[in-house]
Amino acid sequence: MGPHTPLTRFLSDGWTTTRRNLIKIKRVPDILVFTLLQPIMFVLLFTYVYGGAITIPGSNYTEFLMAGIFAQTVVFGATYSGSAMAQDLKDGIIDRFRTLPMNDAAVLVGRTNGDLAINFLSVVVMMTTGFIVGWRINSSPLQAMAAVGLLLLFAYAMSWVMAFIGMSVRSPEVINNVSFIVLFPLTFVSNAFVPADTLPTPLRIFAEWNPVSALVQAVRELFGNVPAGTPVGDTWMQQHAPLAVLIGAGILLAIFVPLSIRKFSRVASR
């Protein structure tokens, strides 16, 4: 037994539940397929299927596309926390956790850390695939690290949002379907795969204020994938994309971390 201050308990419990989710990544083939194969498939499909048809002024499609795929993948990767929390409730294991003398936040910390690990793996795989198909980082290593950091931070904030939704909806199937219906338009009606200025006006306005577009733009900038002439929206969010992402993720975390912890300490299975 180690010393038991609230902080050491929090760290120890958080690590124990994180480990639980890391083991799950290893054991559940679906997660590995989603994490590793799907991003590779997306990079290849978009590059070779759309790459020839879409011209990006001042840039080329692969250079333009990669930030979009990164963003889309990590946003979807964040949905695991939603379905996993719903599944844990359904299985009754949340009841077990809640009768243990553990930190109230630990299960959620472990869960969202699990998503973080999945997303980190995905990003590494996508970057590697990107290099193979000709994508390059045209910025300093520090900026490139900041790009990866922003991707993971934004997705981490989304994981807390999804965890809250998962505990409220309590059905893994519903979570999967709803996140599909909400996140697909959110990631497609953005600047992820085509420049926003090619969209019809209402969609263009949506795309330029879409937080996913801010993430895409921020990552594009930080990887140095916005050569002169590449169209960039003129909204504040597009012009100050990295800052917008930091603020957005900060707001989501400030709201949903306490909200989720509160929810967790009150839910009971069935």
């Binding site: 124990t16 539940t17 639980r20 083991i23 294991i93 553990m102 630990a106």
Partner: peptide, 19 residues
């Protein structure tokens, strides 16, 4: 109330650590 993806041993070990 057990974790399906953990082994029997891992489930019990996890509970021990959380105590």
């Amino acid at each position: 109330a057990v974790d399906e993806n953990l082994t029997g041993f891992e489930n019990l070990e996890m509970v021990g650590r959380l105590y």
